[in-house]
Design a protein around this nucleic acid. Sequence first.
DNA 1: CCTAATGTCTCTAGCAACTATAGCTTCAAG
DNA 2: CTTGAAGCTATAGTTGCTAGAGACATTAGG
Lengths: 146, 146
Amino acid sequence: MLTIGKLGEAAGVKVPTIRYYEQIGLLPEAERSAGNQRLYSRKAMERLAFIRHARDLGFTLEAIRDLLSLSDRPDQSCAAADAIAKAQLAEVESRLARLTALKAELERMVVQCAGGKIADCRVIEVLGDHSLCATDHRHPEIEATQ
Amino acid sequence: MLTIGKLGEAAGVKVPTIRYYEQIGLLPEAERSAGNQRLYSRKAMERLAFIRHARDLGFTLEAIRDLLSLSDRPDQSCAAADAIAKAQLAEVESRLARLTALKAELERMVVQCAGGKIADCRVIEVLGDHSLCATDHRHPEIEATQ
DNA sequence: CCTAATGTCTCTAGCAACTATAGCTTCAAG
DNA sequence: CTTGAAGCTATAGTTGCTAGAGACATTAGG
């Protein structure tokens, strides 16, 4: 049995995050020691590793919750799990496309300003330039900084 | 002079977001009409477009705050603005690299599961598989116990 | 001119997914 | 047996918005 600290170390997850996962029901309530401290089995550790890995892959906690509830019923068809993964892949591909465009624009604006003044600065200029802006008014999801 | 709704429409920013930007000091306090409604000049509109564009490029509000304070003093060297953009570019490149790796892994796990059961599902399998995990946070002594 | 339908106002609370703080208790090493 | 690390709970803060309530302002139609 592992204490929460050891579990966190083993799975690469911070201690408060583990308690948070328990709080939101992603992890079951942990067993407790005589002194009320959480104790974890190897199984709990695997569940946490699964979560952690999925988070690294960009899955939301909601998607992970679905995946976990699926994996708790291994007799069912895996179509649902597949759908979740496919949606995730589509999302990643869209993010990739936007980031690639973005990188091009950033490269365009990063220029060596050997002592130049801001009035002539391309960084400011590009950001203020409306004509370079895709003029549709959709609100693209700006991904959260991880 | 534009009302907040027209401004939002013109800049592609939602009304509550504009008020939020004012609240956190990214936009100056707007002039008010006789009936206490916010009124915006073309200049304010440009500032908002600048913010919106920078947000689209993934800049944080803090970075934008810096860029705006720089652009308010156009006589200074543009080195600082350049540094912000460069940091942003590095961040974008790192995100791109991670997303690309991620996409490969997702593609690996998305397989046609023609009626397969979850017990054999690659999605669950890959997410649970520790050996496929790129970022290894485990400590050697813990790993040895497996 | 009146009314109804929008639009705007402030304020508060909520979202994801944590992270940090305060003030305790428990545990393991020396 | 003592000390310091690690654990506990509870609450509040973070980023960048978004949504709701209830009241006032403005505008278009009749």
